[in-house]
């Protein structure tokens, strides 16, 4: 695309957001180094946690009187059921999961990284740090170790639930 003579307001807005984010983070983290602010924050957290606990207790009491389970109890029940299901699964005849032989040797060809779609995790500059030389001695030492005989039997197990 040919560069436009007109300014791009949306790009300017995006740049401003990035700049604001960086500045706000720097300012906030700088402020957190102040013991007074940290003390106030911790006090606020303690008060809020206390209020939350008081509220939870009140709701629990109400639910108990109404003979109803709380969300937390239901979640615990679900987890317990899941654990029981997993244990039952292990008692059932297992599915066959192939076990390949343990005879692989390092490939002579270099690693080709798979192509991945762009993820929005923190962006980082494209420059790659120079890789230090690997310790050849240790590598050779490990390589010199004879590989054990491959297991040929395919042991069977049950796959985990999705």
């Amino acid at each position: 695309m040919i560069p436009s003579l007109f300014l791009d307001p949306l790009q300017m807005w995006r740049d401003a957001i990035n700049r604001l984010e960086g500045e706000a983070n720097t300012m906030a983290t700088g402020s957190l180094k102040s013991p007074e602010l940290v003390r106030s924050l911790q006090q606020a957290t303690a008060v809020s946690a206390g209020m939350q606990q008081g509220f939870d207790k009140m709701v629990d009491g109400y639910l108990r009187r109404a003979n109803l389970p709380s969300r937390k109890q239901l979640a615990e029940l679900v987890q317990t059921l899941e654990r029981i299901e997993q244990k039952l699964d292990r008692l059932l005849p297992p599915d066959e999961v192939p076990r390949p032989a343990r005879t692989r040797k390092p490939a002579a060809t270099p690693v080709v990284a798979p192509s991945a779609p762009a993820a929005p995790a923190q962006a980082a500059p494209e420059a790659v740090a120079p890789a230090p030389k690997a310790n050849q001695d240790a590598s050779a030492k490990t390589k010199a170790k004879p590989a054990k005989t491959a297991k040929t039997a395919s042991r069977s197990r049950r796959p985990a639930k999705a």
């Binding site: 991945a116 923190q122 790659v128 890789a131 230090p132 690997a134």
Partner: peptide, 25 residues
């Protein structure tokens, strides 16, 4: 250890291990 190595790669705490940059680096 005598066989030890540290590598510092561009990226953040999570993007070093997951995401497009991790795949390449």
């Amino acid at each position: 250890s005598t066989d030890k190595e540290e590598v510092t790669l561009p990226g953040g705490h999570v993007s070093i291990a997951a995401g497009a940059n991790a795949v390449k680096r």
